[in-house]
Simulated assay, not measured.
Amino acid sequence: MAQLDSFSVPDFHLPFGNSKHPQAARANAEATSWVLRHELVTNAAEEFAGIGCGHLAGRVSGEASYDTIVLLAEWMAWSFVLDDQHDHLIRKGQLTAWRPVTDAITAYLETGKADGAASLRNALVTGFIDLCDRILAGMPEGPAARYRAHVPLMLRSLDQEAGNRRAGERPSLQDYILMRRHSSQLLPMMDMVEAGLGLDLPQHIHDLPEFRAVVESAVDVISWGNDVFSLPKEYSCGDNNNIVSLVAAWEGRSIQDAVQAVEGRIQVRIEDYLACERRLFQVMDSQPETDPSVRSDVARIVRSYEDWMIGADLWQRYECTRYRDERFAAGLESAYTRPDLISAA
């Protein structure tokens, strides 16, 4: 597929404030060092640092401690490598090498044991083990259980993405939206932020339809916005895991018209978020048994979701070189991608 010639990201008019942790740049350097130390990246370290994982972590959890920011930045760095290595295997038609790695990650989540040769010599697996141990060690029971549930769903969604890239495969918009909530890799990170803020919302709060609607609308806003930023790469390499490309295909629009249509969808979803937030607090306030401290904690979590929406947008626009890189826009693999990282597993 041809490269997208002219393209500009619209302003999504996110009505939220945002402040960044003052040591975000230091966290970015530490996350880059962690990736290099674990040999997830061996070349083009400067290009990897340009992703700005520490800046993103600092924007979405600015109230948390510096140690929390660094750990989140390292997890984000691992997630970017995971995503890029998965893309590499799809391009090379080598997806059989993917299963031992994801099986090892899932098994470690379930058992706490690293079994098998893939676990012992693959940097994605050993990096995950290092992060997982430190993440779960500091997590309250609720966020830990949700983190354990969300990571396998995230991995499964990458399998779905691979299926969507087979010749002739194109998911419906609704199927894509549901998949994207997990392939965005946001939910485990949101679990980390909840714990990093010192919160442990009761599961019955997370199970409220109104609370789930808040989370889903926030994740959709972030994911669809990211699809607009990443459109040049995905369009150029024929990857249809992008809401803009799918709107263009299913609604018979040009790419430029589809960008405008997605911008409109994002604005509607922002309004959905605000309405869902109001309904959530109305429901909680109508229940006499609602503990004031729980309501306060919910308000802090909701504020963190707003930080995620505006923080991700600001990071992509001003602090991340990934979406402006010429290789990325041309649909090429990242310069730091290790071709042998997973094939050796």
Rank of each mutant, 00 (worst) to 15 (best):
275 A>K: 09
322 R>F: 05
125 V>R: 00
30 E>A: 06
114 A>M: 04
261 A>W: 10
9 V>A: 11
89 L>P: 05
274 L>P: 07
15 P>D: 02
164 N>V: 09
186 L>G: 12
114 A>Y: 06
155 L>A: 01
334 S>F: 04
329 A>T: 15
152 P>Y: 08
252 G>D: 11
177 I>N: 07
77 A>G: 07
216 E>S: 15
126 T>A: 02
140 P>W: 04
258 A>H: 05
143 P>D: 12
145 A>F: 07
314 L>S: 14
174 Q>E: 14
307 D>H: 08
269 R>N: 10
140 P>S: 11
253 R>E: 15
14 L>H: 02
32 T>L: 15
200 D>G: 14
67 D>V: 14
130 D>V: 00
237 C>Q: 12
252 G>Y: 07
177 I>W: 08
126 T>V: 00
199 L>V: 08
270 I>E: 06
45 A>P: 03
290 T>W: 04
324 R>Q: 15
314 L>C: 14
73 A>G: 00
291 D>R: 12
32 T>H: 06
126 T>W: 00
219 V>T: 10
278 R>M: 14
50 G>N: 08
174 Q>V: 12
96 T>W: 13
207 D>Q: 12
334 S>M: 05
335 A>V: 03
325 D>N: 15
240 N>M: 13
178 L>R: 12
294 V>C: 10
316 Q>Y: 14
211 F>N: 00
232 P>E: 12
143 P>E: 10
10 P>Q: 00
74 E>L: 02
306 E>I: 01
